[in-house]
Amino acid sequence: MMLQAPCRVLVVDDSAVVRQVLSEILAADPGIEVVGTAADPLLAREKIKRLNPDVLTLDVEMPRMDGLAFLENLMRLHPMPVVMVSSLTERGADTTLQALALGAVDFVAKPKLDIARGLESYAAEIRSKVKDAARSRVRASVSRPRQVSEQPLITPRPGFRTTDKLIALGASAGGTEALRTVLEAMPADAPAIVMAQHLPASFSSAFAERLDRHSAMSVREASDGEAILPGHAYLPAGGRHLRVIRDGARWRCRIDDSAPVNLHKPAVDVLFQSVARSAGANAIGAILTGMGEDGARGLLEMKQAGAATLAQDETSSVVWGMPGSAVRLGAVDDVLPLERIAERLLLLARS
């Protein structure tokens, strides 16, 4: 049996401490080879040509060239898997979301204090994300503005109104853009949507605001106990689980701070399982691009409760971990490319 060659990684960061710590963390895994480091994008550009790495870890805030400008050029001219190293700040969240829109596969958080110990505390996650990135699908990016529009990118389509359907979406790596694509195609009066996307607490507000700017629907962080209404899409607030509960003839959001599930909080399984119990056959579930298996069992519970279920196909997924797991589990009615999922969700909601 042939052994798989380790993925080759180039670490790009202006901090010598971060370069050293990340290199040591990654090199401790036999499935990873750190082929080099670079202190800024200009050096990184030369080393990419010379070393031909499989994956790049990239800090955003660096000297000599803005990290986003470098990423944009890289994904246009030499697309490759990139894992961002981002600070857990409001500015860091917004920049990271822009990086994901430009084509970065995933990101790891860089603590503000005691960086070395902070990075080492989730070394396993860093190594896992880098290895998963090496297996991801990366495409050359098209030219697009780095700042999102203040207006929805679509004209709301009139005439769609329903109060008896609920759409549940789950995603991880690649999901910030996949969710944007789905919500962009939804009319202003679409059925209510509840979502779970693997993000740290400090990123959820910026992500909700970004989705809201791109959608005719009203996208917001869910608050505990609020009614779930048509024309609205709800994300869990700040690294917490979102559940759907039944309250008479309506659904409400339940936000809780219980333990991670499948190592995640929010977890897609938590959301999907609650939708299966509270909405049953009135729900539609879709699992989008992401690493791991989170959401597969929950989607199966939704299907067993009578809900229609969809999965993003492998070709359009950045990482076909979560959708692939759901398909193998028998949880999926239909597998579709990302650009067709919104249309199918609306068709199912009308039936």
Rank of each mutant, 00 (worst) to 15 (best):
A192M: 06
I193F: 07
A196C: 08
H198T: 13
H198R: 14
L199A: 03
P200L: 05
A201F: 07
S202I: 15
S202Y: 15
S202H: 15
F203C: 04
F203T: 05
S205H: 08
A206F: 03
F207P: 00
F207E: 03
A208K: 12
R210F: 01
R210E: 03
R210G: 01
L211N: 05
D212T: 11
D212A: 14
D212S: 14
D212N: 15
R213P: 02
H214V: 08
S215P: 08
S215G: 14
M217C: 04
M217Q: 12
S218A: 15
S218M: 15
S218W: 12
V219I: 11
V219Q: 00
R220S: 06
R220F: 01
E221G: 06
E221I: 12
E221R: 10
A222Y: 12
G225K: 09
G225Q: 06
A227E: 11
A227D: 10
I228F: 01
L229G: 01
L229K: 08
L229V: 03
P230I: 06
P230N: 09
P230R: 06
H232W: 04
H232G: 02
H232M: 05
Y234K: 10
L235N: 13
A237L: 12
A237V: 15
R240D: 00
H241C: 04
R243W: 00
R243G: 00
I245L: 03
R246I: 05
D247G: 09
D247E: 13
A249N: 13
A249I: 09
A249Q: 14
R250Y: 01
R252W: 01
C253R: 06
R254W: 02
R254H: 12
R254K: 11
I255V: 12
D256G: 11
D256Q: 13
D257F: 10
D257R: 11
D257T: 14
S258D: 08
S258Y: 07
A259E: 08
V261K: 04
V261P: 00
N262I: 07
L263S: 14
L263W: 14
L263D: 13
H264E: 09
K265G: 01
A267T: 09
D269Q: 10
D269R: 05
F272G: 03
Q273Y: 05
S274A: 13
S274D: 06
V275Q: 06
V275F: 02
A276D: 10
R277A: 15
R277Q: 15
S278P: 03
